[in-house]
């Protein structure tokens, strides 16, 4: 049920984000979701792509520092309070969210969010118990 995210170390320099984008583009890798965490000096680019292992190999060959992390993609009702409902469940079960971000494309009439948990397995079982839909790698391919 877990998905794989790629994170890339980027210096705050002109054109670095563009370098990553065109490198992946040239190799036919599609970016599904992305976010950037930034400090004044550097950033961490996090992405969900269709071929994560290939993407990491390509990036590393070009000298980027990149790694894979397990994340969980969760379907949320696309209405006011939809996100809050999921967060409430996590809060009630003491599950810590390291960070989260949304998908670029629409998966259904519902919104798709990516969560990075400190304990992803526990989060998955809690969410399932509460009937929250989790999107697996297979379902992702059909986007």
């Amino acid at each position: 049920m877990k998905l794989t995210q790629i994170s890339v170390f980027l210096e705050n320099r002109k054109g670095r984000l563009c370098d990553v984008g065109s490198l992946l583009g040239n190799h036919g890798i599609n970016i599904r979701a992305l976010t950037i965490a930034e400090s004044p000096e550097f950033g961490i680019l996090r992405m969900v792509v269709d071929k994560p292992k290939d993407a990491v190999d390509i990036l590393k060959r070009k000298g980027f520092i990149a790694k894979l992390t397990d994340i969980v993609a969760v379907e949320v009702d696309d209405r006011p309070g939809g996100l809050a409902q999921v967060l409430q469940i996590l809060y009630d079960n003491s599950i810590n969210v390291e960070y989260m971000y949304g998908f670029v494309e629409k998966f259904s009439d519902r919104a798709l969010l990516v969560f990075r948990f400190d304990s992803p397995d526990k989060a998955i079982s809690v969410l399932k118990k509460n009937k929250i839909n989790i999107v697996g790698a297979k379902a992702m391919e059909s986007i």
Binding site: S7, F9, A37, E38, F42, I44, R46, K67, T69, Y99
Partner: peptide, 8 residues
Amino acid sequence: FSDEMKAL
């Protein structure tokens, strides 16, 4: 390298 800002 870590995907978490706080670690870096």
